[in-house]
């Protein structure tokens, strides 16, 4: 199965810009399905970015983050070719990880 995470990391001098898009329903637990039954909450709780053995960005999310979440940030200290590891875990214990090369 294709990864749920799409990430693009581009180094520009000392600064690396990271954009990530994750496929996830991010159900709030307030929405009803076609039969009128509540869809239970299902959302990513933590999303982590690691580079060169160090956390560079950690996101704690609640249900108010949009479906198929997107996040953008920048950090210093990495160069082209370095590995950026992205991983998430959700409230049902599911998780996914991907390692991207900084370009």
């Amino acid at each position: 199965m294709a990864s749920s995470i799409r990430v693009r990391a581009t180094a520009n001098g000392d600064t690396t810009e990271v954009q990530a898009l994750i496929q996830h329903p991010m159900d709030t637990g307030f929405v009803k399905d076609a039969k009128g039954e509540l869809i239970p909450a299902h959302y990513i709780q933590q999303l982590k970015f690691e580079c060169n053995g160090k956390d560079v960005f950690v996101a704690d999310w609640g249900t108010a983050v949009s479906k198929d979440p997107y996040v953008k940030f920048s950090f210093k200290g990495a160069k082209k070719g370095d590995d950026l590891k992205v991983s998430w875990t959700d409230n049902k214990g599911a998780s996914d990880t991907i390692t991207a090369k900084i370009s």
Partner: peptide, 15 residues
């Protein structure tokens, strides 16, 4: 949402 910004990360977030 709450984001932790370690040293070296630029304090800018878009979501």
């Amino acid at each position: 949402a709450s984001y932790r910004i370690p040293e070296g990360t630029i304090p800018t977030v878009a979501n």
